[in-house]
């Protein structure tokens, strides 16, 4: 592994051509700023209404949380739990752990084990599905757009921004970089 990777260039595996590490000159500040942005967007996405739906004089507005609380109310606890974990809790945990690790490289925070957080990040990463949820929302909208009037609300737009942002953070924070930060924070 080279010590210094050129800005915005990738290091690929010589055998399988998979991207192992991504170069960035100021990754720590950049990622921390993106994390804060993503956390704010996620807070916005949770606190306003998501989508409104009107058909034959009847209207209904939902917020983001209702996408899984309604499943819970219908008795599908397993699916409801999965949706909650995949679209909200795990991305949130990822961002919080990552911010904590980055801050620990600068300040002595010390109230959480950094190595444990690094392991948490490595384990929850495949299970964060913000971008998949976004596609799911779009497909659902296309499905019902012909039979009712749909109004997209603030929370929807916040999530539309959040999902690609999250994917971008995940791309910049490759495993190599993450564990170097963990080493710095120790």
């Amino acid at each position: 592994m080279p010590d210094k990777i050129e800005h915005r260039s990738n290091v690929v595996c010589p055998r399988c051509k998979h991207v192992i590490a991504v170069g960035h000159n100021n990754a720590k500040h950049y990622v921390l700023a993106l994390c804060v942005t993503a956390l704010i967007l996620l807070a916005v996405a949770c606190s306003f209404s998501f989508i409104s739906f009107a058909s034959n004089g009847q209207a209904r507005t939902i917020n983001l949380l209702q996408t899984f609380t309604e499943l819970y109310a219908q008795g599908y606890i397993f699916v409801s739990l999965l949706v909650f974990l995949f679209i909200l809790l795990l991305p949130l945990l990822y961002l919080l752990s990552l911010s904590y690790i980055i801050l620990s490289t600068r300040y002595r925070l010390g109230f959480l084990p950094v190595i444990g957080l690094g392991k948490v990040i490595s384990h929850i990463l495949p299970w964060s599905m913000a971008e998949v949820f976004l596609i799911g929302v779009l497909v659902a909208l296309i499905k019902i757009i012909s039979m009712a009037d749909i109004f997209l609300q603030a929370s929807f737009w916040a999530y539309v921004l959040f999902a690609p942002l999250f994917t971008h953070i995940v791309f910049i924070v490759d495993n190599h970089r993450l564990w170097r930060w963990v080493d710095d924070a120790k």
Binding site: I51, T67, P126, V132
Partner: peptide, 26 residues
């Protein structure tokens, strides 16, 4: 490994439709 999570789309679509379309008897 990459496409694995994309099949979750279907479950999410159902979750959103179920939450959104609750107009009682209509």
């Amino acid at each position: 490994e990459f496409i694995g999570k994309w099949s979750m789309v279907d479950v999410f679509v159902v979750a959103i439709l179920v939450a959104l379309i609750q107009l009682g008897g209509l």
